[in-house]
Design a protein around this nucleic acid. Structure first.
Length: 366
DNA sequence: TCTGGGGTCCTAGGACCC
DNA sequence: TCTGGGGTCCTAGGACCC
């Protein structure tokens, strides 16, 4: 039987939530979700731009100051994560109804994979089923999405990006047509090949997936070493990973960081400590409400030249003590930072998380 | 153009233990 | 007196993703 996987990706998710759920008056207008551009002097970047804003040349990751100059009439909205999270949960619920065995693999807040091998038996084509899913998502969440259909997750993900917004793209199922589809795409099209890897591959004259398809593993080895097998498989459209439901997400870390409006002089210790204390308080609050404990505290410092260090310390036993978090964070900060360089960003992260309930099992033996 | 904030995963070296 | 080999934990850094 032919395996069918669908990748569902929301179109301009954060901006769409603002337009179609939170602020209907913004429908049809250029919307940028991200930081306040402060009249062109803000320091953040655009998180998501609505398609109207994209038409003006604005894209995700662009500094807000630049976006503001390109399109001063754009509406800049602060992120409201709770409403995105709510919309995301609703989406997953819809997808669960269509997926084989209700299995959904949530890839991020706005995208997911579902296996529909069985479900497709009841439709004339996978494309028909995708259309029905797209409609259900629009009716139940008020939001638009695009869908990629392919015999595996890797190819489905790439397919989704081909036709956006509100697109449906089917690739396969026969291996030859999958290879043909991939052949013309740049290596960057693969999930997992970022800027660094792509640059490295270009140095070896490898630019597109068609080239990788034709290479043997020994030919690929000088460029990719142990990653060669992975790259060759993905370039040929081979991906046998089973689609595992990850509905119960286990969080691995919680962090907060803050970029200052202007770099902070290193002698402003009290101010810097106050900022760190506030972050620790907010993280601690999350730890307690989510009934978690942590073992490792990491402090991140980014200097004015953008160079960044991270220093961490672990405690021997899991704790949810916010006072301990604050004490460790400040100690690390005081001891590890360069005392003469201006600071652009500070951050705090806790990791080595465990559940309070796990802990209670342990105490029975103590 | 001057580069956010939230994450995950992987690698590699050193400490420590048997 | 030149020191093996394996396992695990901790720390630091980096690549990548949305």
């Amino acid at each position: 039987m032919i395996r069918w996987i669908m990748h569902i990706d929301m179109d301009a998710f954060f901006a769409s939530v603002e337009q179609f759920r939170n602020h209907p008056e913004l429908i049809g207008r250029p919307v940028c979700v991200g930081h306040d551009p402060k009249g062109g002097f803000g320091r953040g970047v655009v998180r998501t731009a609505s398609y109207e804003a994209r038409a003006k040349g604005i894209h995700a990751g662009m500094p807000v100051s630049q976006a503001y100059r390109l399109c001063p009439e754009a509406v800049f909205v602060d992120s409201s994560f709770e409403s995105y999270s709510e919309a995301s949960d609703e989406l997953m619920e819809v997808l669960r109804e269509f997926a084989d065995d209700g299995r959904v693999r949530r890839a991020s807040i706005d995208e997911a994979y579902i296996e529909v091998t069985q479900a497709c038996q009841n439709y004339t084509s996978p494309r028909e089923l995708a259309g029905e899913i797209q409609d259900a998502v629009r009716v139940r969440t008020s939001l638009p999405c695009s869908i990629g259909i392919a015999p595996n997750m890797s190819v489905a993900k790439i397919a989704t990006g081909i036709n956006k917004p509100r697109g449906i793209t089917l690739v396969g199922p026969d291996p030859a047509s999958v290879e043909e589809f991939l052949a013309t795409l740049p290596v960057e099209a693969l999930n997992g090949v970022g800027k660094k890897t792509a640059e490295w591959l270009h140095r070896f004259g490898i630019d597109n997936l068609g080239q990788v398809q034709k290479m043997t593993l020994p030919e690929l080895w000088p460029a990719m070493g142990r990653g060669s097998i992975w790259l060759h498989d993905r370039a040929c459209g081979i991906d046998d990973r089973p689609l595992m439901d990850n509905g119960v997400r286990v969080r691995k870390s919680i962090s907060k960081d803050r970029t200052f409006m202007e770099d902070v002089e290193p002698d402003a210790s009290e101010y810097l400590q106050e900022v760190l204390r506030k972050m620790c308080f907010r993280i601690g609050d999350k730890i307690v409400t989510k009934k978690l404990r942590f073992r490792t505290v990491t402090v991140k410092i980014r200097y004015s030249d953008y160079s960044t260090i991270q220093r961490s310390r672990s405690v021997p036993v899991e704790t949810d003590d916010t006072g301990m978090l604050e004490k460790l964070a400040l100690e690390i900060f005081d001891h590890k930072r360069d005392p003469v360089r201006p600071i652009r960003l500070v951050g705090v992260r806790v990791s080595g998380l465990s559940d309070v309930t796990e802990q209670s099992c342990l105490t029975e033996y103590m």
